Simulated assay, not measured.
Amino acid sequence: MSVELPAPGRMEDRVVVITGASSGIGRAAARELALLGATIAVVGRNPERTRAVAAEVSGTAYLVDYADLQSVRDLAERLLADLPRIHVLANNAGAIGPRATTRDGFDQTFQQNHLSPFLLTNLLLPRLVDTARDAPPGSVRIIQTSSAGNLFGRVRIDDLDNRHVGPWLGGFTAYGTSKLENILFTRELARRHQGDGISAYAFHPGYVASGFGGDGPVSSLMKRAAVSPEEGAAPLVRLASTARVPAPSGNYFDRLTAPGRTRRQANDAGLAAALWAESERRSGLAG
């Protein structure tokens, strides 16, 4: 049985951290949530665009480079220093591109789309848990921007750096795997935090008419069926603001409807736990 997300709700006195908020659906979501009354922490990589969005929504700009785990740690430190409460963490930043290795030694797509959001989430979790103690159950939420591209992904714990994924296809192969990792991360988050008032969801925004994905042949073809950034942001806005999400924590929404279609691996609890453990090790959280 499928369910649909209700209309957005008011967000006065609620703090929302949005990554990837300097453009696309992150910027559109920041605008909408600010209009609903939320206080927005605008996180982005580009200084000019990030500060411009922050000024527009009367929020605060935070800069980060997801290809550098130390930059993520620095971001978490600044957010924790500035924000006594965090009600919603929207892990919206994502990237697609050529094969590359980060300064931390990991595949760029894996690190930017999964490992860095994993690290940021875990560093902010104590603040989210504290916030949930005085908030209505389930109203403190962690939201992952995933994709229908998860259907083309395949997670291998022994190949998280995508060395053996086959044809790169402009990065879409690794991108699909990272979007599957987002769903596995969401489900393991839901399992681990089912008793402390935090809920976790992932969603597919649709293919958004923005600069994401560049101008390759696959991207150009998909843009013909693209939705606007405002339409793509609608699931994020509703997941962040509605008083009650009509689906259990851990669900994946295809735009406004759950459950969305996922690759079979998304339901593998053992794989989700193994991905969490390996992500802890690689991000330096383990030990």
Rank of each mutant, 00 (worst) to 15 (best):
G176M: 02
Q194V: 12
P8G: 09
G270W: 02
I86M: 04
R264H: 09
A38L: 07
V237I: 12
V208N: 03
G287H: 13
V155S: 03
A274M: 04
N162Y: 13
Q111D: 08
E77D: 15
G59Y: 11
E77L: 12
V43Q: 06
D159C: 07
I157P: 03
L119I: 01
S147E: 10
G94A: 08
V155P: 02
T186G: 05
R154V: 00
A240R: 03
P8Q: 08
H164V: 07
G250V: 02
G9K: 03
A269H: 14
P229H: 10
F253Y: 07
L169M: 13
D130Q: 14
D104Q: 12
P126L: 07
R192K: 12
L184D: 05
I96K: 10
I183L: 14
P8N: 11
Y252M: 09
A76V: 08
T60Y: 00
G211A: 15
L5I: 01
A38I: 03
Q70H: 11
L256A: 06
R73I: 03
D215G: 04
L221T: 14
A28L: 05
S241V: 00
S2Q: 14
G37T: 06
G232R: 09
R263I: 10
D215C: 00
S241E: 04
L256H: 12
G94F: 00
W276G: 02
E181K: 01
T257E: 15
L115Y: 03
R31P: 00
A234Y: 00
L80G: 06
G195Q: 12
H193Y: 15
L5M: 07
Y252Q: 03
V57W: 05
R85L: 05
R51N: 15
V16K: 08
I40D: 04
A28F: 02
A30W: 00
P126I: 08
L79V: 04
R187E: 13
Q108R: 14
A234C: 05
S199E: 14
F118G: 04
R261D: 13
F203H: 12
P6Y: 06
N46H: 13
P248S: 10
A95L: 07
S199T: 15
Q194W: 09
D82F: 06
R49G: 03
E12Q: 14
N91H: 10
F185R: 00
G9D: 11
A243F: 02
A190Q: 03
L221C: 02
D68I: 11
A273L: 10
R154K: 13
N91L: 08
S220I: 06
S139L: 03
V57Q: 04
Y66F: 15
G284N: 10
A269V: 14
R281Y: 07
P136I: 13
D13W: 10
P136D: 10
A76R: 06
L180T: 05
L79R: 03
T102P: 11
A225W: 12
R191Q: 12
A277C: 02
L160N: 00
A81K: 14
L120K: 14
L63S: 12
N46R: 15
P167W: 02
H164C: 01
G197N: 04
A21C: 11
